[in-house]
Simulated scan of single mutants.
Amino acid sequence: MTWVMTSKMQFYLHEDESLLDGLLRTGHEVNYQCREGYCGSCRVRKVSSSHPIDYPFAPLAMIEVNEILPCCCRVQGVIYIDHELIPE
């Protein structure tokens, strides 16, 4: 089970649920468009995580070292994120 911690709340991801879908399900405001790692509009800041974050395929969007794309990343364990919108 994956636990997600934000400044707003903590919640767990359902089986096979993306981080983006979990954020939207719990009422977090997250921009998104492509849902496939191309546009980068869903990027959030990763504060810390208990496991490495990986991607099933390399995203095309440019992201900083401390950013992740919740639409297509795979998370496990516990992850702390800053879900506030990042200006593009």
Rank of each mutant, 00 (worst) to 15 (best):
M1R: 09
M1Y: 06
M1Q: 13
V4F: 07
V4G: 06
M5S: 13
T6C: 04
T6H: 03
S7I: 00
M9L: 15
M9G: 00
Q10G: 11
F11L: 13
L13H: 02
H14W: 09
S18C: 06
S18F: 04
L19K: 15
L20K: 05
D21W: 02
G22R: 10
G22P: 06
L24A: 12
R25Y: 01
T26E: 15
G27W: 12
G27K: 11
E29N: 06
V30A: 09
V30H: 00
Y32S: 02
C34D: 09
C34Y: 02
R35F: 06
E36P: 00
E36Y: 01
G37R: 00
C39N: 02
G40N: 07
S41V: 03
C42I: 02
V44T: 08
V44L: 10
R45D: 04
R45Y: 07
V47Y: 08
V47A: 05
S48C: 08
S48D: 14
S49E: 08
S50F: 14
S50M: 11
H51V: 03
P52A: 10
I53E: 07
I53Q: 05
Y55I: 13
A58I: 06
A58H: 09
A58D: 07
P59H: 04
P59C: 08
L60Y: 09
A61K: 02
A61C: 11
A61F: 13
M62G: 08
I63N: 10
E64G: 01
N66W: 12
E67T: 03
I68V: 15
I68Q: 01
I68G: 04
I68Y: 02
L69K: 00
L69T: 09
L69C: 11
P70F: 15
P70E: 14
C72R: 00
C72D: 10
R74Q: 15
G77Q: 07
Y80R: 09
I81N: 03
I81D: 02
E84D: 09
I86N: 03
E88R: 08
E88D: 11
